[in-house]
Design a protein around this nucleic acid. Structure first.
Length: 301
DNA sequence: CCTCAGGGATCCG
DNA sequence: CGGATCCCTGAG
């Protein structure tokens, strides 16, 4: 079944967005199990011309399946209008040609996105995707043979941090601890964050908040600083006005807008949100990939 | 064998 | 604010 909205699926899947690791690649397809209204559904999506071709297995209607895919791949976002915006701005004009069809890859679930994002901080893309995949296989639920959901907060909050802690309580340690997934010093952050959501913080309130309030709220989560908070609000909650700023975005923005002058990451964030408004999230996504693919990133090192 | 960075966060001064 | 340190893997 085709959804007639332009997208470059492979680019969107493999662009390293910290919402979640890429789906499993099987032949030409990307596959993943998602919970839809409490039911497990196996999605299979592939490129068909400029559009998305999909199938699904699970006890939901076709309408529900399309609705979920529309959300995850942000298919209702008007790329044509965005490309016009880019071409109308001198500094951004070159970007769209390197990133045709790139869309936001939104998270299945806010909690999953938060833990996944904590894991991504000061980490390589390769390493955090492996960590998240390992966590799913170890403590998530298994469906459709070889697919796993992300573990619940109640599970993660009670995990052992490392092998030492595990062997204090278990006679036969068997890798049932967070650090066995290679998360390193982020293990206690992930546990405390999970505990926070079972006890006091209600994530269902976040979408009702304005950006600043949501940002300040998410910032209270252990292991979450400004960059990760902006990523969580962008990928996990679809706040498109977020402009996650790190050292790379700083270098790129500085090169494009400030004549290469060294400015702080915090100021780059303020500048991005002010300058790009409702397009900030997309501009950030496109800036990063433009810089990667055009070779600009190598030159800015 | 080594060093070094990885789409940062935290703690400390 | 600026700087040191954090886990640990892969690249060089």
């Amino acid at each position: 079944m085709i959804i007639k909205k332009p997208i470059n699926l492979e680019l969107t899947q493999l662009s390293g967005q910290t919402s979640q690791p890429p789906w499993k690649q099987v032949d030409e397809s990307f596959r993943e199990v998602l919970m839809v209204g409490g039911k497990p559904v196996l999605f299979d999506v592939k490129q068909s011309g400029k559009n998305l071709d999909f199938n699904f297995t699970g006890d939901i209607s076709k309408k529900e399946a399309i609705s979920r895919l529309n959300y995850i791949y942000d298919l209702d976002f008007d790329l044509g209008k965005f490309y016009k915006y880019l071409s109308d701005h001198e500094e951004l004009r070159q970007m769209s040609e390197f990133c045709q069809g790139l869309r936001l890859f939104l998270a299945n679930d806010p909690f999953e996105c938060i833990i996944s994002s904590i894991c991504s901080a000061n980490n390589s893309i390769k390493r955090w995707t492996k960590s998240v995949s390992d966590m799913k296989e170890k403590w998530g639920n298994n469906y459709f043979d070889d697919y796993y959901t992300f573990p619940d907060k109640e599970i993660i909050q009670d995990l052992y941090e490392d092998e030492d802690e595990e062997s204090l309580f278990e006679s036969k340690p068997c890798g049932n601890n967070l650090k066995s997934c290679g998360v390193g010093y982020r293990a206690p952050y992930m546990k405390k964050a999970s505990q926070m959501f079972t006890l006091e913080m209600d994530l269902s309130q976040i979408p009702e908040m304005d950006y600043e309030e949501a940002f300040e709220t998410i910032l209270k989560v252990p292991g979450v600083g400004p960059k990760v908070a902006d990523c969580i609000l962008l990928y996990g909650f679809n706040f498109k006005e977020a402009f996650p700023s790190d050292v790379w975005i700083k270098r790129i923005v500085s090169y494009l807008y400030f004549d290469g002058k060294d400015i702080s990451v915090a100021k780059v964030r303020d500048f991005g949100m002010e300058e790009f408004g409702e397009y900030a999230g997309y501009v950030q996504l496109y800036l990063f990939h433009y810089a990667r693919m055009s070779g600009l990133m190598d030159r800015l090192k």
